[in-house]
């Protein structure tokens, strides 16, 4: 089956490696990501104020144009997923706003699209047991910490993604790849989000807590689903090091990069040069590349 695919701005720039690995892996797993034509930015935050319709226009336009092409839309970036899924829900539940927004964007979208995350395709359509059978290079001995962040999970009534405090989908995925899953208490904590621009100290502190907690519990690599989180917990490691002298860096990978290794892709196609902390020494040590 093919899926309509909304990449999002960051996957064309800062997180090309996320986009490329996901596309390549999907072909190996028997489905294709069909990119939406002429997509715009999703707006990057779901407006919480009840009267802010403007921020809903970009995701609404994306949904309406996706519905013209098919019935299931998928994303990789956790932020885009959050914004698009919640907007879709609003279209299903609030007729008045739906009509107003349709009028603004000159479309007639009724909310009848299914929005799924790539991880959900792996779990529900491919299936973790089947994924395990197709792994060519099991990540045996790699201690990986799944970092969910906020956007996949919250608000849980609207996202309907996983348990609000103890999610398991990411763990199931890593186990299917043969990795050793590291439990750590900060796996659903916020990375500080856009504060990394306005108030960098806030984001550095958040990242320090998350990475410190993962390492204390034995992680060798932190796995992410979100380019925003990855910016804060990967690139901010240079700032953390300046502030906390005893801090040791740890590689942060997108989950699709690990999937790529496990599916036997050549490591030169996995975009490790875009990762701030070089994961190659670790992966070589484990015999995975």
């Amino acid at each position: 089956m093919d899926y309509l695919y909304f990449p999002g701005c960051t996957l064309y720039t800062k997180a090309k490696n996320f986009d490329q690995t996901a596309r390549n892996c999907s072909l190996l797993l028997g489905f294709e990501l069909k990119e939406l034509p002429n997509w715009t930015c999703c707006g990057a935050t779901f407006p919480l104020a009840t009267d802010n319709l403007m921020a809903l226009l970009p995701p609404a336009r994306i949904l309406a144009s996706a519905r013209e092409q098919g019935t299931v839309l998928t994303t990789l970036c956790a932020v885009c997923f959050n914004v698009i899924k919640r907007t879709n829900r609003l279209f299903q539940e609030d007729g008045e706003k739906r009509d107003k927004i349709n009028n603004f964007i000159e479309k007639n979208y009724q909310g009848d699209l299914r929005v799924v995350h790539y991880l959900e395709i792996l779990k529900q359509e491919v299936g973790f047991p089947q994924l395990k059978e197709r792994v060519k290079r099991p990540l045996t001995g790699l201690r990986a910490a799944p970092y969910y962040g906020c956007m996949l999970l919250r608000p849980f009534e609207e996202m309907e993604f996983d348990d609000k405090e103890r999610p398991t989908i990411f763990e199931g995925f890593l186990e299917a790849l043969g990795a050793k899953v590291v439990e750590f208490p900060y796996k659903i904590e916020c990375c500080g989000s856009f504060q990394s621009v306005g108030s960098p100290d806030v984001a550095t502190e958040c990242a320090y807590k998350i990475l410190g907690s993962a390492m204390k519990n034995g992680a060798e690599v932190v796995v992410s689903t979100c380019p925003m989180c990855t910016f804060n917990i990967d690139h901010k490691q240079s700032d953390i090091k300046q502030k906390y002298l005893d801090f040791k860096t740890i590689p942060v990978l997108y989950f699709t990069q690990l999937l790529g290794i496990a599916m036997g892709l050549d490591h030169r196609t996995l975009g490790f040069e875009q990762n701030f902390v070089d994961p190659l020494p670790l992966l070589k040590g484990k015999g995975l590349v």
Binding site: T45, L48, C150, R154, P155, F156, E189, S193, V202
Partner: peptide
């Protein structure tokens, strides 16, 4: 400073979504 991570709203026993409140206050 609120980044709308929605941890507060998820955990509030009275179901007050403070993330929503913060957005309203900014406006």
């Amino acid at each position: 400073l609120c980044v709308s991570c929605e941890t507060c709203g998820t955990r509030c026993p009275n179901k007050i979504d403070i993330g929503v409140l913060m957005d309203a206050l900014r406006e």
